[in-house]
Design a protein around this nucleic acid. Sequence first.
DNA 1: ATGTGTGTCACCGACACAATTACAGTTATA
DNA 2: TATAACTGTAATTGTGTCGGTGACACACAT
Lengths: 146, 146
Amino acid sequence: MPTSTRFVVAVHTLAILAINEGRPVRSEDLAFSVNTNPTVIRSLLSGLADAGFTTAQLGAGGGALLAKKPSHIALLDVYRAVEDSELFSMHRSPPNSVCLVGRNIQNVLRPTLDKAQAALEAELAQVTVADIAADIAQRGDFRMPS
Amino acid sequence: MPTSTRFVVAVHTLAILAINEGRPVRSEDLAFSVNTNPTVIRSLLSGLADAGFTTAQLGAGGGALLAKKPSHIALLDVYRAVEDSELFSMHRSPPNSVCLVGRNIQNVLRPTLDKAQAALEAELAQVTVADIAADIAQRGDFRMPS
DNA sequence: ATGTGTGTCACCGACACAATTACAGTTATA
DNA sequence: TATAACTGTAATTGTGTCGGTGACACACAT
């Protein structure tokens, strides 16, 4: 199960933006903190901007900025913005409808899987980017890498 | 964040075994219902057998059998038996410790991610293979494919 | 006008999963 | 006991997704 790192990296990015309130941060600096390539960050920011969480200030001295107060961005919102695929994936090729089990397993399983996913999402809905940023800020003075 | 299809296929398989209580079911028949290759099923059954959920009757007329009452197999047990990796994956390469955010993001995020996963697992713990089998059986007479 | 930075595309390598083939080992049964 | 029917597992292949990388057009501050 190769789950993507996008969600964690997106929260990481938004936390930096929250702590740098108002100051644009370059994708290069974000990438330096995340330890990845600037293009990876920009592609991620593209999705976050579509969702209305960030904006970009183009040109020299520009960079990424929060478009909403961090206390109004729940981790669930971030999760949904950057993580597209289903949590549980069903059969790769559809089960055999000749068999009673094959014909019904997906419909029978669906409510349980949906409930499980909803429970997970309810937890993510209770934490905001502001919470994460505050937790981090509490651990020491912030300093952007060189 | 796609999970593998193993979990759903494992539940599918166990449901068939539950409905065929006592009669060994060949991997070929299970594969026919799931619409995959018998070896995929056998490899899955290997893990389920290690977890103590199934046994195999070797030789002619053999096949897979439940080793526990289906009411004693929660979907969470199945999930853990066949799905190995973490639900949320952290940064591929470790974040930059020069940055306060990079240094702390994983520790700060961990409790929230753990809580979310626990909530999901709590839901899966409440449903058993017997529940699924009953739901399916209720939808019509069972008949093994030719 | 120039330099700085974003947005996006295309491509590559790594990796996990599923499908498939092959074959050794076990067991019912004729 | 010989044979056929199964399982268990190893090895190989195909495929999809993700993350990393380079290239380049576009936007904007100065």
